[in-house]
Amino acid sequence: MSAIEPITLASQGPGVEFDAVGLTLGRTTILDQVSFKVRPGSVHALVGPNGGGKSSLIKTLLGQMPHHGRLNLHWAGAPGCIGYVPQALEFDRGLPMTVDDFMAAMCQRRPAFLGLSRHYAASIGQALERVGMQDKRKRRMGALSGGERQRVLLAQGLIPAPQLLVLDEPMSALDEAGIRIFEQLLLDWRTSGTTVLWIEHDLEAVKRLADHVTGLNRRILFDAPPEQALRPEALLQLFSTHPRSAAVTGSHA
Rank of each mutant, 00 (worst) to 15 (best):
residue 155 A to C: 04
residue 160 P to A: 06
residue 208 R to N: 12
residue 76 A to V: 12
residue 185 L to F: 02
residue 192 S to W: 02
residue 102 F to D: 02
residue 163 Q to N: 14
residue 107 C to M: 07
residue 125 G to P: 01
residue 166 V to H: 12
residue 147 G to P: 05
residue 129 E to Q: 13
residue 175 D to F: 09
residue 172 S to F: 05
residue 84 Y to G: 10
residue 89 L to S: 13
residue 93 R to M: 09
residue 206 V to M: 01
residue 171 M to Q: 13
residue 120 Y to M: 15
residue 112 A to P: 08
residue 137 R to Y: 00
residue 93 R to I: 05
residue 109 R to W: 14
residue 87 Q to E: 13
residue 145 S to T: 13
residue 115 G to D: 05
residue 131 V to A: 05
residue 156 Q to K: 13
residue 169 E to M: 07
residue 106 M to T: 06
residue 154 L to I: 06
residue 147 G to E: 08
residue 202 D to H: 11
residue 217 N to V: 02
residue 185 L to P: 01
residue 182 F to I: 04
residue 108 Q to P: 10
residue 192 S to V: 03
residue 132 G to V: 01
residue 160 P to G: 07
residue 217 N to P: 01
residue 113 F to A: 14
residue 99 V to W: 00
residue 178 G to N: 07
residue 192 S to L: 03
residue 197 L to E: 09
residue 171 M to F: 06
residue 190 R to G: 02
residue 90 E to H: 15
residue 131 V to Q: 02
residue 173 A to Y: 09
residue 165 L to G: 03
residue 110 R to D: 09
residue 121 A to T: 10
residue 75 W to I: 06
residue 195 T to C: 10
residue 81 C to Y: 11
residue 179 I to Y: 12
residue 71 L to K: 08
residue 168 D to H: 13
residue 164 L to Y: 12
residue 99 V to C: 00
residue 196 V to G: 06
residue 162 P to M: 05
residue 195 T to Y: 08
residue 152 V to A: 04
residue 124 I to E: 01
residue 77 G to V: 05
residue 78 A to K: 15
residue 78 A to F: 10
residue 112 A to H: 14
residue 119 H to T: 14
residue 147 G to R: 05
residue 204 E to I: 09
residue 155 A to I: 01
residue 78 A to I: 12
residue 77 G to Q: 13
residue 69 G to N: 01
residue 140 R to T: 01
residue 72 N to H: 10
residue 95 L to K: 11
residue 114 L to M: 15
residue 134 Q to R: 07
residue 69 G to V: 00
residue 166 V to P: 11
residue 194 T to H: 07
residue 166 V to C: 14
residue 191 T to Q: 15
residue 153 L to T: 06
residue 165 L to A: 11
residue 203 L to A: 03
residue 128 L to G: 00
residue 172 S to A: 15
